[in-house]
Design a protein around this nucleic acid. Structure first.
Lengths: 185, 185
DNA sequence: CCGTGTTTTCAATATATTCTGAAACATCAA
DNA sequence: TTGATGTTTCAGAATATATTGAAAACACGG
């Protein structure tokens, strides 16, 4: 009580725990906003952020309490994060509860996201574009030919993207990618 | 009339216009789905797709008719696409109506998207992360230090991303990027 | 300044997505 | 088997996002 009041009464260096809490909140909010802009739901991004900056694995209940969300919501999104491979569930011996920890290596994180987005979105998109190209190959007329050409160009570009992403996935071993990226600097 | 009926009566090679229409619908749907997965609204992606495969500029009314959407919706999303630089508005002499055409060069399209996402999302994210790092630099304690370290690592990674994207933006001139990408093949 | 064609705006509505909370389900130890 | 502990599911509620449509604003030629 006294400490709290003291903080309000005189200006001075903010105590570390309070300051940290504040900055952490800001980070969670930013990460969530970023996620939203890239098609990831708010809660999932928030949980991910929370686990990224936690120095120990957290239980579902801790996540619920921290983010003020329901059990169902926490469970679903933790499950999804595990599905993405961005979060691992860890068991503590002697405890039945499940704990969760995020992959902390930023480069690995990036590789995982690239792998999953390739698998879930790029590869199917490529099939679709190839199909669109194939099905219009033999059609005649200016419209059809223009359409076909566009499909070819898009497919070619997505194929290149796909290949680049595939290389990035394997980057842990081959280290070609970090090298190429440095080259772009 | 006769041609239409003939199509219904005997099995045979589908006439080009009908086949093209079908494939085009499929492409629009796929592009819209893809957009959604990457945080772009359905209609905007659909309009973009429509203009990409149109061999002439289209008016707002044509877009409305083709996609069966309201004037307000068409207008807003066309405006946004122009804001992204993915679509240009063109004026036909003697006509008061505005027409719209998409950037058709796939590589340029990509550069535009990279430029805009960098400007709208990456740069602000980087500022936020730097701020989070700076504000926890002097805090002591295991929690604060772990947090600070994570912020530094994330900021470093985003800074790299930012730089790579900046190079891609300028790729039209310098052509370093296509070269580096080929290297990754 | 008026009339006409076009674009923009925005409150209301519709749709899509996310979240909750409680019940069902699992697992284990006694 | 029972009870304690933990997880999953999912219908309904809450929220966020997108869409409509009609009125207002605008731009221009006459």
């Amino acid at each position: 009580m006294k400490a709290a009041r003291a903080r309000l009464l005189h200006a001075g260096p903010v105590p570390a725990p309070a300051a940290l809490h504040e900055v952490r909140e800001e980070f969670l909010a930013h990460w969530a906003a970023m996620g939203t802009a890239w098609g990831i739901n708010r809660t999932m991004a928030q949980i991910h952020a929370l686990l990224m900056v936690s120095n120990r694995p957290l239980s579902t209940d801790e996540v619920m309490a921290d983010l003020q969300i329901s059990r169902g919501n926490a469970n679903t999104n933790l499950r999804d994060l595990v599905g993405w491979g961005l979060v691992r569930s860890v068991l503590r011996r002697g405890e039945r509860k499940e704990f969760f920890e995020a992959e902390k290596d930023v480069w690995k994180m990036f590789c995982i996201i690239v792998r999953e987005r390739r698998r879930r979105e790029i590869t199917p998109a490529l099939s679709a574009l190839d199909a669109c190209a194939a099905r219009t190959k033999h059609l005649r007329g200016a419209d059809a030919e223009a359409f076909h050409q566009m499909m070819e160009r898009l497919a070619e570009f997505v194929r290149l993207t796909n290949n680049v992403m595939e290389k990035v996935e394997r980057a842990e071993q081959s280290s070609v990618v970090p090298w190429a990226l440095r080259l772009l600097q």
